[in-house]
C-alpha cells in the first residue's frame, strides 16, 4: 500500500531530485501521507478517493523548496566550476559604456542587463559570468575566457570575439550580427536562434556547437573545421548564402546542414 504513496512522492519530488534537503523533507512528509492514507481507508474511504485527498494535502511544495533549490543551484557544479572569488562580482544593470575592462578577472561575474556598449574586455577572465540581456554592441572580448558564460539574449552586434574561449557558453537568442568570432574556441557552445547575419567564424574549430534556428545569412566559415555541429531549422536561404572555402566538416554536420534542402556553395571537404 505504501507503494502508492511512494509513486505519488516520486512524481511530486521529481523536479527536486538530487537536492539533499528535499530528500529529508520527503522522508518526513512520506510518513505523514502514509498515516493520512491509512486513516482515510480506515474510515471507509475508497482507495482512489483517499489517494486524491492525500495528494491535495501536500499543497505547494515550491513554497518550501524553491529557496533550498536556489541555494543548491548556486553550489551545483557547472562545466566550469569556479567559486566566486572574493571582491566585486555584482555589476548587474550597470552602465559601463566604453569602459576599459581589459584583463579584469571577474569569474561568475553578474553583468546581467547592463549597458556595456563598446566596453573592452580584451584578455579578461570571465568564466561563468552572466551577460544575459546586456547591451554588448561593439564590445571587445578578444582573447577573453568566457567558458560557461551566459550571453543569452545579449545584443552583441559588431562584437569582437577574436580568439575568445566560448566553451560551453550560452549565446542563444543573442544578436551577433556582423560579430567577429574568428579563431574563437567553440566547444559545446549554444547559439540557437541567434542573429548571426554576416558573422565571421573563419579559421575556427567548432565542436558540438548548436546553431539550431539561427539566421546565418552571409555568415562566413572559411578555413573552419566543423564536427558534430547542428544546423537544424536553419533556412535553406541562409545555408545557400553562407560563405565556405577551405572548410572541413564531418558527415553528420554536412547532413544536418543540408537537411532543409539548402545547397552550400564553396569548397567543403567532408571527412
Amino acid at each position: 500500500m505504501t507503494h502508492r504513496i511512494d509513486t505519488l512522492l516520486d512524481e511530486l519530488f521529481a523536479p527536486y531530485q538530487g537536492l539533499a534537503p528535499a530528500q529529508e523533507l520527503r522522508a518526513e512528509i512520506r510518513l505523514d501521507l502514509i498515516e493520512r492514507f491509512q486513516d482515510l481507508l480506515a474510515t471507509g474511504v475508497e482507495e482512489s478517493a483517499a489517494l486524491d485527498t492525500v495528494r491535495k494535502s501536500v499543497g505547494n511544495l515550491q513554497e518550501i523548496l524553491s529557496d533550498l533549490q536556489e541555494e543548491h543551484m548556486a553550489d551545483a557544479s557547472r562545466p566550469a566550476p569556479a567559486p566566486a572569488p572574493p571582491g566585486l562580482t555584482q555589476f548587474n544593470a550597470s552602465v559601463l559604456r566604453n569602459a576599459d575592462l581589459r584583463g579584469v578577472m571577474v569569474e561568475q561575474g553578474n553583468f546581467k542587463a547592463s549597458q556595456l556598449r563598446g566596453a573592452d574586455f580584451t584578455d579578461a577572465v570571465l568564466r561563468g559570468a552572466s551577460f544575459k540581456a546586456s547591451d554588448l554592441t561593439d564590445a571587445i572580448f578578444d582573447g577573453a575566457d568566457l567558458t560557461g558564460a551566459d550571453l543569452a539574449s545579449a545584443n552583441a552586434k559588431n562584437g569582437s570575439f577574436k580568439g575568445t574561449n566560448l566553451t560551453y557558453a550560452r549565446l542563444s537568442h543573442a544578436a551577433l550580427r556582423n560579430a567577429d568570432l574568428s579563431s574563437a574556441v567553440l566547444v559545446g557552445t549554444q547559439i540557437k536562434f541567434a542573429d548571426l547575419r554576416g558573422a565571421l567564424f573563419d579559421g575556427n574549430t567548432l565542436t558540438g556547437v548548436a546553431f539550431d534556428g539561427a539566421n546565418l545569412t552571409g555568415a562566413s566559415f572559411r578555413g573552419t573545421s566543423l564536427t558534430h555541429v547542428s544546423f537544424r531549422h536553419v533556412s535553406r536561404r541562409s545555408v545557400g548564402s553562407m560563405a565556405f572555402g577551405g572548410t572541413t566538416m564531418d558527415r553528420l554536420t554536412y547532413t544536418l546542414l543540408t537537411a532543409n534542402g539548402g545547397r552550400p556553395s564553396g569548397d567543403i571537404t567532408i571527412l
Binding site: 512528509i29 499543497g59 518550501i64
Partner: peptide, 13 residues
Amino acid sequence: YEPKEATLYSSLR
C-alpha cells in the same frame, strides 16, 4: 482549516 504539508513544514522550519 487544516494546513497543507508544504505550509506546515515551511512553518516548522
